[in-house]
């Protein structure tokens, strides 16, 4: 093992012990490692933004680009200046234009992503389960496909019903009596079960990953201790 490997190994060992010490309670060493992590990550983020975003999209075209490129950079330069200057409390109102630009851009990207990236593919996947032509591509029997498709449809409708908080106003009885339609209530109960299944599976996935990380750290610590004790 050469010197840099040894040094980085010791750093990794110490940081692992410091973070894992949180298991016996919040302490100074845990916070030390956490603050070091915050500092390094903030620095890395700054370098990354400067090198991957600010330089290629703003500074390079401005300093080394053609006249046409420089003209096009004037708008983002102006927006950037407005955003920077708005940090001065007297000029706070300047941030509205760049933030409005960002809000409009993000809203449109969210709409596009929601419709074309999530809603259409997910609804298609539910509907396609009822299409017999697609069944022959898999090894499962047709009755199992039917059961699967029906359960999937009920699950999706139930889950959406669970999150439906609209209520019906009952005129004949007490004016404050607001209730969800009975069908919606029944579907919401079914949805509750399916949401439980979904969250349970997600929990199991994250828990498995976390457990693997724990095993990795224990193996790492064990390896280092064995190396020191063994003198290797």
């Amino acid at each position: 093992m050469n010197m840099p490997e040894l040094v980085w190994g010791v750093v990794g060992f110490l940081l692992t012990v410091m973070i894992l010490s949180y298991l016996i309670g919040d302490n100074f060493f845990f916070r030390l490692a956490a603050y070091l992590f915050v500092g390094v990550t903030a620095g890395f983020l700054t370098v990354l933004i400067a090198r991957q975003i600010l330089w290629p999209y703003l500074l390079q075209p401005l300093l080394e680009g053609s006249t046409y490129q420089r003209l096009w950079v004037l708008i983002p330069l102006l927006l950037s200046l407005m955003l920077i200057l708005s940090q001065i409390s007297q000029l706070r109102a300047l941030s509205r234009i760049p933030l409005a630009f960002l809000a409009g851009l993000t809203a449109a990207l969210v709409i596009g992503g929601a419709v074309f990236g999530t809603m259409i593919p997910q609804m298609r996947a539910v509907v396609i389960g009822f299409q017999p032509a697609a069944w022959h591509t898999e090894s499962r029997s047709s009755w199992m496909h039917t059961v699967d498709a029906v359960v999937m449809l009920i699950g999706v409708i139930g889950t959406l019903s669970y999150f439906h908080f609209g209520s019906r106003f009952k005129r004949k009885t007490d004016s404050s009596d607001l209730s969800r339609p009975r069908l919606l209530q029944a579907l919401a109960r079914v949805g509750e079960v399916f949401i439980g299944f979904a969250l349970g599976a997600l929990f199991a996935g994250i828990f498995s990953s976390a457990l693997l990380a724990m095993i990795d750290r224990i193996v790492f610590l064990g390896g280092w201790i064995a190396r020191w004790v063994g003198g290797g």
């Binding site: 709409i111 929601a114 997910q122 699950g155 139930g158 399916f194 299944f197 979904a198």
Partner: peptide
């Protein structure tokens, strides 16, 4: 595949909210 039904519902719900 059973959890997929709930996950699909949650995803469609999030997408509707985002929309």
């Amino acid at each position: 595949r059973l959890p997929l039904a709930g996950l699909r519902g949650i995803l469609i719900g999030i997408a509707l909210g985002g929309l």
